[in-house]
Amino acid sequence: MSDHISKTPADNSDDLSRLYRAAPTAEPPAPLDAAIRAAARRELAAAIDSKPRFWHRWGTSLASAALLVLAVGVILQLQRETPTALTSAPAPERTATPQPATPEPELALEIAAPATKADTAVMATDAVVKQELRRRAVRDDAVADYQAQPGPKLSVEGKTANADRSRASVLSQGVIEERMSTAPAAATAAPGPIPQPQAIIPLDGRSALQRSEVKQKAATAEHDAITEFSAQSDRSASAEREPEPEPAASMTRKFARESAPDRPTPMSPATGAADLDARTAVIDDWLRRIEALLQARKLPQAEQQLRAFHQQYADYPLPKLQQRFGRQWVDDTLKPPSQ
């Protein structure tokens, strides 16, 4: 307590210090003590509550912002994951057109994930989707015409239900057609569940090419046969008259009657009755012209045409050829050169 900075009596205040300490001491009032102590505790409590107070003030705002960010993220993610073919396709119109039965849900899910399919399957699916879009456009035109006509219309709810069924039908149909396009030919010969078989014809490019070649060769053979037949007809004017060949119409009916039970046909699985008739007519005409060449004694030309016919229609029943032109001649003509 005392400072001994000087040894002089004037600097030594020990006596005064003792006397001063003996003087009555004063203390702050008790309420003042309590107020100061309470203030000290209040400040500590305020400091401890500062963090919860912050969350209480900003918690709602932060939670709302986080929820908004999460929602935007989910929407963006969904948009990113949705297949382009399906999202870019226009939504089906709410039409009153009758739709096929509602497909199975798993089929629709399969078309919704094309990335898991093989490349061929993806291409086939894309073709199916495009084809469906074209078909839908035609149907929309028909619906527009239908709605333009006076008369009772379906309610909005019915249209909505039909549209939903139409959308599901498109997905299901796409999967079915996709499977058919990748299935073996024997399996594709069976009649499919698609109610519009003409829509599948463009998918069978091989059959279309084959038909094109057949038509081209048939036209050539027909041209040759007609030429020969015309020449033969000119020459046979002075020759003895031979019996008239069987009419083409009756031949066509005969071949159609004979070949029908022996199906499966080698033609396209989706070939309809019109295509079958056209093919039968071409074959019948070709055989008729071979028959004419034989009757005209033009054996080299007849043999050439028979080999061409057999090469083109290898699946044509050989017994029928033998029955029509003679077993010996058919076997000799179609015998491989090495043998």
Partner: peptide, 27 residues
């Protein structure tokens, strides 16, 4: 001028309340 002050013999003064009160007045 610094007054000529001598140290106090406080042995008896500490019990003198008048002296203590005077000290506080002087302070």
């Amino acid at each position: 001028e610094l007054p000529d002050a001598q140290q106090l013999d406080v042995a008896d003064l500490v019990h003198n309340h008048s002296c203590l009160a005077r000290l506080l007045e002087l302070v």
